[in-house]
């Protein structure tokens, strides 16, 4: 039995780790480094990841390249929820890891791990293309460690406790309380889904 599971695991993990298709999600300057990674000098295609899909339905990894503002947060969560399992997240750049130099800004989410679960944190501002490739290799190593038996646990850990309210597109918690509100002028009102 163990032999069967380990051989299935091997094929399953080999296939998934060698074709990690990223989602085109570049919200600011780290996106330039991401483009450079897929360009000729550092060629992300060597790892089979040059297939940048525009739709989350066909992507495996969300490379969040750039600052996530509070306004952008629901969109990020929506994109993450639209991705099919198995899905991974690379937080690229200091802004996505922990707020970066905008930590004390009123408009920036201090780390996307407050919204979605993150697999690989990649600091620096912005990281070198080599560093992004290194994080991709680390993600591949992480994928290869998984077994098919852990799938339910894995899926449970990859569900965000936040939801998007269908009418207002605000972030809400499971209890249904609206935690993020935007006034007409775009000012942030009381109650946030995450502290900043």
């Amino acid at each position: 039995m163990n032999v069967i599971i380990s051989s299935i695991d091997f094929i399953y993990n080999w296939a998934r780790s060698n074709s990690v298709w990223p989602l085109t999600f570049a919200t600011s300057c780290c996106g330039i480094e991401m483009m450079q990674t897929s360009a000729a000098n550092f060629d992300i295609a060597r790892f089979g990841s040059e297939v940048f899909r525009a739709t989350p339905r066909q992507a495996d990894v969300l490379i969040c390249a750039g600052t996530i503002t509070h306004k952008m947060a629901p969109a990020l969560l929506k994109l993450y929820q639209q991705m099919p399992e198995p899905k991974y997240v690379i937080a690229m750049g200091a802004c996505t890891c922990g707020g970066g130099m905008f930590t004390d800004s009123y408009a920036v989410v201090n780390g996307i791990d407050k919204i979605i679960p993150v697999d690989i944190y990649l600091p620096m501002c912005p990281p070198k293309p080599e560093a992004l490739l290194d994080s991709l290799i680390k993600l591949q190593k992480k994928i290869r460690k998984e077994t098919i038996l852990d799938r339910p646990k894995y899926i449970a850990s990859h569900v965000s406790d936040l939801k998007i309210d269908e009418d207002s597109e605000f972030l809400i918690k499971d209890s249904g309380i609206i935690l993020q509100q935007w006034g007409v002028s775009g000012n942030l009102q009381e109650g946030l889904a995450y502290e900043f």
Binding site: I90, C97, G98, G111, D113, V118, D119, I120, Y121, L122, P123, M124, P127, K128, E130, A131, D134, S135, K138, K142
Partner: peptide, 9 residues
């Protein structure tokens, strides 16, 4: 050193 990616924050 620039390869700073890690699984844990």
């Amino acid at each position: 050193e620039y390869e700073l990616a890690d699984e844990k924050k």
